[in-house]
Amino acid sequence: MYFDSLQAALSMEGHGSFVWVAYLITLLIISAILLLPALRRRRLLRRIATELARQESGYATGKGAR
């Protein structure tokens, strides 16, 4: 490791705030572009599942009515 202490690594001789903020923002954006499509797919699958369930129960009651 280049830095002697955690303190030194955080401050980076005055440049620390810029470097760490840059990495933090990048981390946020990368997590967003990784998580959003996964969440979207899961949400879609769940919605299709409820739709299918509703259709199937609809069939069951519908038959009786007809």
């Binding site: 980076m12 001789e13 440049h15 620390g16 840059a22 990495y23």
Partner: peptide, 10 residues
């Protein structure tokens, strides 16, 4: 100095 470390994401 240390600011160049941003290069690894930039």
């Amino acid at each position: 100095g240390n600011s160049y470390r941003i290069i690894y994401i930039h």
